[in-house]
């Protein structure tokens, strides 16, 4: 009897969780993207705390500007003093970095790290999961006290992203991402991010609520002693100046 029960328990445990079909997963990703997308303008004050082995912790203050309708993005570093005036600007498909020390603009790829931290452009930009990745169901899991759906994402052919494989833990109740793992091309785990605090604001331009992570904790899984804490403060959805997303505007901030 005891053997039969053990066998039954083993069989039941081995059964996969009720799989979520692909259209549902795509719908879920589209919903996640849509909740974080703002039709109009967006401004946020962001603090980045970078911890690295054998180095003093560095806190950076950055202003993030977005105009999602035109796919525009700009970052302006305001602290520490040594990085004040540095900026990142996306113009069309190019990402430009500006250093007021040299007065030079350099073109970089969209996948590069921001200001030497573990963050990337995609951490501050609108979410494009449905557009860039193909999902597959990874089961259900308990993350602390939260019940989550696990989705495995693989980049679509012809799309260039920083990490080609993702694993997402999505809160079953409110569909917020709680944990995100990013894998290198080799399949090695490169970065784990936790999203302990989601916040929402009513967006007039969208006529719906805009969700944003109030806090992101990013852990470098290759150089395990490195981590970055991202705090998003003072999110403002009012219209920004029309001429904001220009090289001239960014340069003027350091004059």
């Amino acid at each position: 009897m005891r053997t039969t029960l053990s066998f039954l328990f083993a069989v039941l445990s081995a059964l996969p969780a009720l799989a979520v079909e692909k259209p549902e997963m795509l719908k879920l990703l589209a919903e996640i993207d849509d909740r974080q997308r703002n039709g109009g303008d967006y401004k946020a004050l962001v603090y980045l705390e970078q911890k690295e082995k054998d180095k003093a912790d560095v806190v950076r203050e950055v202003l993030v500007y977005r105009r999602d309708a035109d796919d525009k993005l700009m970052l302006l570093f305001t602290q520490p003093k040594s990085e004040e005036g540095k900026g990142i600007l996306r113009l069309d498909k190019n990402l430009w970095t500006y250093d007021p020390g040299t007065g030079k603009w350099d073109r970089t790829t969209e996948r590069e790290r921001i200001g030497g931290t573990n963050t990337r452009r995609s951490d501050f930009d609108e979410s494009r999961l449905a557009e860039e990745y193909e999902p597959s169901f990874g089961g259900e899991a308990k993350l602390g006290k939260f019940d989550t759906l696990v989705l495995d994402l693989k980049v679509k052919d012809g799309i260039d992203v920083a990490y080609p494989i993702l694993k997402l833990w999505i809160d079953k109740d409110n569909h917020n991402i709680l944990k995100r793992q990013e894998f290198a091309l080799s399949g090695k785990l490169a970065r784990t991010s936790y999203y302990p605090k989601w916040q929402k604001l009513f967006s007039e331009s969208k006529n719906a609520e805009l969700w944003f992570p109030g806090e992101i904790r990013i852990f470098d899984e290759i150089e395990t002693s490195n981590s970055t804490l991202v705090l998003m403060k003072a999110v403002d959805l009012h219209s920004l100046d029309q001429n904001l997303f220009t090289k001239a505007w960014l340069e003027s901030k350091s004059r």
């Binding site: 790829t109 996948r111 260039d160 920083a162 990490y163 990013e182 290198a184 080799s186 490169a190 290759i222």
Partner: peptide, 16 residues
């Protein structure tokens, strides 16, 4: 050891 670098298309990659 592990080498970590971005490919020339900007995708992160590693090799042990």
């Amino acid at each position: 050891l592990t080498f970590s670098a971005a490919t020339y298309k900007g995708t992160n990659n590693t090799i042990d």
